[in-house]
């Protein structure tokens, strides 16, 4: 009886193995790896898993998410860029692609990728605790001007996107970038928001999407958003541009493949992702997660990344993060 059980167990395992070896077909003829340069459970990971799920349904082949974390995104992006350009490794590229090489964290630049499509953009916000003394952004900026070096800002590690957003905002408002202190947060926006609710920092400049749960529950308030237009989810929050500060910043996510991937594979992927991005399911997913939707097709996305690469260089230089 026991032996029989063993045989059955082994047989089942054997079969699952044989089936994963899969059949022959046009692209994709086997499992595709989706590299996520950030950890399991985070925003990028959730997006990666959603896209992978939808792509699996579309192509009838498994798209499996692999979290290759480390080096502030450098490890995953490098793994994605230097994979064989056969379409079997695609990468969720994020904004850090345009900043980390300026900081000397990697030699990898945006040029190592071919771009499939962008699907998301989240603007930075200016979030304070609910009982903070500043009613609007102007009061906050006046306070900074009157008491330089007193206020504590946080959101991400030094040189991360929300730090850069803060630097750009102060610069555009005509204030010296060191007129507030940046408190690096080791694990990202969640930790910074914890500090904010505890009253240990004054302002958090992470995306409004990340701060949304606390804003909605009344624990925090948004003074402004660093976007070109008001966000549909936060119609009452003014943009910096309305307040006379010419600055917008945010993070973005999209899909890239290693440079040199065959054009027909890129086309196939691009069409599929654009189709997903226009679907109702995607809209619902992005809304519940609080992510903003921004779709750019391959060529357009590439130009956007190129612009971003230049734009962030100036900001990094202001913050003293540029590696000579």
């Amino acid at each position: 009886m026991k032996k029989l059980l063993w045989v059955v167990v082994l047989a089942v395992m054997g079969f699952t193995w044989v089936f994963t070896l899969s059949a022959w077909a046009a692209y994709p003829e086997k499992a595709v790896t989706v590299i996520c340069p950030w950890g399991a459970g985070g925003g990028t990971d959730r997006l990666a898993r959603f896209l992978a799920d939808e792509l699996s349904k579309k192509f009838g082949q498994p798209f499996t998410v692999v979290n290759k974390t480390g080096g502030g995104g450098a490890v995953g992006h490098a793994a994605g860029a230097y994979a064989p350009p056969d379409g079997y490794t695609i990468t969720i590229v994020t904004l850090e692609l345009a900043t980390m090489h300026w900081m000397g964290l990697t030699d990898l630049t945006y040029e190592a990728f071919d771009y499939i499509a962008q699907v998301n953009e989240d603007a930075a916000g200016v979030t304070v605790k609910a009982d903070a003394p500043w009613k609007n952004l102007k009061e906050l900026l006046d306070d900074i001007k009157a008491n330089p070096g007193k206020l504590l800002f946080s959101g991400v590690a030094a040189g991360g996107i929300w730090d850069l957003a803060r630097i750009g905002m102060l610069h555009a408002a005509g204030l010296p970038v060191d007129s507030v202190k940046w408190i690096p947060s080791t694990t990202g926006a969640a930790q910074a928001l914890t500090e904010l609710l505890g009253g240990h920092v004054h302002v958090v400049t992470c995306s409004l999407a990340e701060a949304a749960p606390y804003i909605k529950s009344g624990q925090a308030r948004a003074l402004a958003v660093m976007a070109d237009e008001r966000l549909p989810a936060f119609p009452d929050v003014p943009t910096l541009k309305e307040l006379g500060i010419n600055w917008s910043a945010g993070t973005w996510r999209g899909v890239g493949v290693p440079k040199g991937t065959p054009a027909e594979i890129k086309k196939k992927l691009e069409d599929a992702i654009i189709e997903i991005a226009n679907s109702e399911a995607f809209k619902k997913f992005m809304e519940t997660n609080g992510f903003g939707i921004k779709v750019r097709r391959g060529e357009e996305f590439r130009k956007f990344v190129e612009e971003q690469d230049k734009a962030w260089k100036t900001v990094l230089e202001l913050g003293g993060y540029l590696k000579k």
Partner: peptide
Amino acid sequence: LLIHWIFKVIFKL
């Protein structure tokens, strides 16, 4: 087979 089954089939590594 066990390793393959756990890591590749279930955890999709």
